[in-house]
Design a protein around this nucleic acid. Sequence first.
DNA 1: GGGCAGTATCTCAGAACTGAGAAATATACC
DNA 2: GGTATATTTCTCAGTTCTGAGATACTGCCC
Lengths: 165, 165
Amino acid sequence: MNANDETVKASADDRDEGQTLALRLWIALARAHNAVQAHAADDVARHGLTVTEFAVLEALFHKGPMLLGEVQRRILVSSGGITWLVDRLEKRGLVERRPCPGDRRARLAALTPDGEALIRGIFPEHAARIKAALSGLGKKEKREAIRLLRALAEGAAAAPGGDGG
Amino acid sequence: MNANDETVKASADDRDEGQTLALRLWIALARAHNAVQAHAADDVARHGLTVTEFAVLEALFHKGPMLLGEVQRRILVSSGGITWLVDRLEKRGLVERRPCPGDRRARLAALTPDGEALIRGIFPEHAARIKAALSGLGKKEKREAIRLLRALAEGAAAAPGGDGG
DNA sequence: GGGCAGTATCTCAGAACTGAGAAATATACC
DNA sequence: GGTATATTTCTCAGTTCTGAGATACTGCCC
């Protein structure tokens, strides 16, 4: 149910125009992501964290202990990546691994008291920083952008190839 | 000149709501970027290229020979990154370095005939693939998304910290 | 024409991953 | 119960990049 006018009648010009538009959108998406990511990275670096490390702590803070695999899917890293991340956070005493009751293959990642104190302390400031980085859009525009980006992600997941086909 | 209603009167609730909205937007942005990037990566991988390598070839294809620094700023990598990328493409015979007339510090990157033939051959299909990945939005929505993403990127660049303050 | 800040690229150590495959366990079917 | 397949995490080699500092040159000012 996409409002896809170009499927009705597609001349060569229409196709070119549609492709140009798509490429422009892809570039705009990449640049916006990059610009916001720079702010996020800059902010969490003050606490010696990377954006993905922060994402792990934040997930555990808001959802409680989770299977490594759940965290992995949530923050979009590979299986090797989540092992590496949790190793790193465990060495710093921010996260611990616990056995998963009922499944001896799996392990839960959970915040330690230190980890919880850290994320509790830095999360509000981080959220404020993200909000500031996104201040180019008003509330209404943000809501519209969220709607469009979600439709974009769903469409991409549904398209053949990539990671969703 | 941002349509920023929340600057008028900001109760604690308003602030929380604004932050929640901002965080949701940040997540939607990251997921959309990731989903589209997966398609782009999957497509160029068929020719043994990464997304950034493709971006270098595409820049040189559409703009002609460029200073390494120009390419670097265009595709958003570090100085070490662009050296590494051009090295790699040069080894594969797709790109060559040329001296820059009038500045002996600088070097131009330019497509070789092989490189031009490659990008000319794969660009149309890649553009079609990107268009397919972005088919979750209609033309009108794409235009609106581009407008919002550009405003987002500008706002982020203008905000203190990150890479634009 | 010598010093000096500024700019462009390169070098290099190492960060932050990826992806394939191994090991351990779970689940389903005969 | 036994075999096959799937799932979950871990290991490890290799890839793709970053950031700091080195090197080479430019252009300005005295």
